[in-house]
Nucleic acid binder design. Structure first.
Lengths: 179, 179
DNA sequence: CCAAGATATTTTAAGCTTGAAGCAATTGGA
DNA sequence: TCCAATTGCTTCAAGCTTAAAATATCTTGG
């Protein structure tokens, strides 16, 4: 931890109803406002909750991990395969991480690495036949799980949520890629 | 990987426009539908994107990690401290993980563990004075970062998003805690 | 032609993550 | 009473994660 100079005053407005999940976080420290913060924390807790379940099921039913699933998903749509750096970009996973992920998937016989190209730096990964089969089964299950988890989310919420999330994503993207 | 019996047919409907992020995933394999799936993938990519940025800034500005921030946030609202198992539940982090997290935060002098209670199994963690100071600074920065990242998300989207996310959370919660 | 810079991947160190196994301490029912 | 189940925490092994450093291979401007 770095030493911190900026020490805020603190009055610890402690309204201690013990709450089930961590959506409350910083609230309470001040009024309890900040719609941006609330939205963010809610989104975070949902994805954490659902991810954990998906992860659990992927492990139980396929002995696979979520990052592995993501990587396979990318390759599934690209019969020609993808270079590792593309996989890194698409899965939002750092390059170093892709190496290990690919190592394991290759060991499992789900992907192969080919160093063909004219450029001897690049490696292209593609699904094996078995990889395609395994992923197809996973994707089918995964789709079902999501329908199940969102079973009582109405049409309007699904559509509205998609819209809203698109705006949020747009805003964040613009700040991050600083266009 | 487990051997997979269920082998779907496959026709690899390859419409290969290379896409910037992994939101496409399973789509393409079939129609391109499934609003639940689309919503989920979008949410996932946003949280991944924003988390990475927050993580990066926490590291740069405070040399702290996101899980550490979460843990401190929980303690900040509880002057009496919390038992480790409560921290685990609230941060949605497994017990084993809390141990290590607490070890590091304790080594950094931000929290203390007290084994007082009548029950000699439980350990209560609470912020030190320095812990409170450091967290207050982090929370202030964190709040600003979110306002910044969501700067051009209008009021209506924030409010609507909160509503929609609440419904989604409700749906998923019900399936998971199987009420 | 060739060195400087840019790319692509791997390695490394530190930390997070999970599920499962291990140990204590406590509780509850026979 | 007392021992079997439960609870609270830690340890462990395997894997994910990141940033940064190391390698190797192009590419390009002089």
């Amino acid at each position: 931890m770095l030493p911190v100079k900026t020490v805020a005053s603190e009055q610890s407005t402690d309204n201690s109803e013990p709450s089930a999940d961590f959506e409350i976080l910083v609230r309470g420290a001040r009024g309890g406002q900040q719609p941006q913060l609330r939205l963010w924390l809610r989104m975070l807790s949902i994805t954490k909750m659902i991810s954990q379940e998906i992860r659990r099921r992927l492990r139980a039913d396929f002995d696979a991990t979520l990052p592995q699933f993501d990587l396979l998903a990318q390759l599934y749509r690209e019969p020609e395969g993808l270079r590792l750096s593309d996989l890194s970009r698409r899965t939002m996973v750092t390059n170093g991480n892709i190496t290990g992920l690919a190592d394991r998937l290759e060991a499992d016989g789900l992907i192969v690495r080919e160093m063909l190209n004219g450029d001897r730096r690049v490696t292209v990964a593609k699904l094996t036949r078995r990889g395609r089969e395994v992923f197809a089964a996973m994707a089918k299950a995964h789709e079902g799980w999501l329908r199940e988890l969102m079973a009582d989310v109405d049409e309007e919420t699904l559509a509205g949520g998609l819209q809203h999330l698109a705006k949020i994503k747009g805003s964040a993207s613009r700040r991050l890629i600083e266009e």
